[in-house]
């Protein structure tokens, strides 16, 4: 019994320590946003744009078909359940409020977050971070800040793309390929969606972006010496990112809709 209590205590203490480290790391990156030194702005801007390109633009060919599949699948299923009534409302609730941000986050975790964790681990092991420091440059400003800005902006853009494609594209697919009656679907969507839904989506995307980036960077920087630690760190980072996104999703939904 003592052994079990000790084990639980140690795990709880280590988890609390890890979470507070993540918060401290987030604060340190946020401080950099407000410091605004003249030096390095052009470089930070370029790396941020590159990150948006890698995370958002390159993900479009993947997220668009996924959004189409999800959108059309949900429309077909819910039009059968609810007939023509409340289909728009159901779609807004499912796609804009819940599935859109979560699927976007999952896609970013699978594609980019793991890549960032690997990249940072690699930079750490092969002394590239030391090389940046030896150039007199703060790696937090040149490595972490642009990735935070880039990934968060990318998730926000991808979330908007996902919602639009899932709703409009899904509707078009069902309308073209099936005879399922959907009533005045677009008008229903227009009536069902509120400013809160849009605001919540944006808030979720921003928080997901921050959680994903910070977790991956932290795990990336934790790998110090062994190349075999990279897959372990990356897998931990991916699982943690997804878990944090789900928790954040629930908390924001409770705050706004309960």
């Amino acid at each position: 019994m003592d052994y079990l209590a000790g084990y639980i205590g140690r795990k709880a203490s280590s988890a609390t320590n890890h979470i507070s480290n993540l918060f401290a790391f987030t604060c340190r990156i946020f401080v950099l946003i407000f410091q605004k030194p003249e030096a390095g702005r052009a470089l930070v801007r370029r790396i941020s744009l590159e990150q948006v390109y890698f995370t958002c633009v390159q993900a479009l060919p993947i997220i668009i078909p996924i959004a189409l599949v999800f959108g059309s699948m949900l429309i077909i299923q819910f039009s059968k359940v609810s007939g023509q009534y409340d289909l728009g409302k159901t779609m807004v609730m499912l796609i804009v409020r819940e599935l859109g941000p979560v699927i976007t986050a999952l896609l970013v975790i699978l594609r980019s977050a793991t890549a960032v964790a690997i990249e940072i681990s690699y930079m750490n092991i092969f002394h590239e971070i030391d090389a940046i420091e030896m150039a007199g440059i703060d790696p937090m400003r040149i490595v972490c800040l642009p990735r935070l800005i880039g990934i968060t902006s990318a998730i926000l853009c991808l979330f908007i793309v996902f919602d639009l494609v899932a709703i409009i594209g899904g509707y078009l697919i069902v309308w073209i390929f099936t005879y399922i009656p959907m009533g005045d679907f677009i008008t229903q969507i227009g009536k069902a969606i509120t400013a809160t839904d849009i605001a919540v989506g944006i808030i979720k995307a921003i928080f997901f972006g921050i959680a994903i980036t910070v977790t991956c960077l932290k795990h990336g920087f934790s790998v110090k010496r062994l190349i075999t630690d990279i897959p372990v760190g990356t897998s931990k980072a991916a699982v943690e990112c997804f878990f944090y996104c789900l928790v954040i999703n629930v908390i924001i939904s409770i705050l706004f809709y309960m």
Binding site: L43, G136, I137
Partner: peptide, 8 residues
């Protein structure tokens, strides 16, 4: 790299 950073 150093010049990119410091000369902006």
């Amino acid at each position: 790299y150093t010049r990119y950073y410091f000369e902006n």
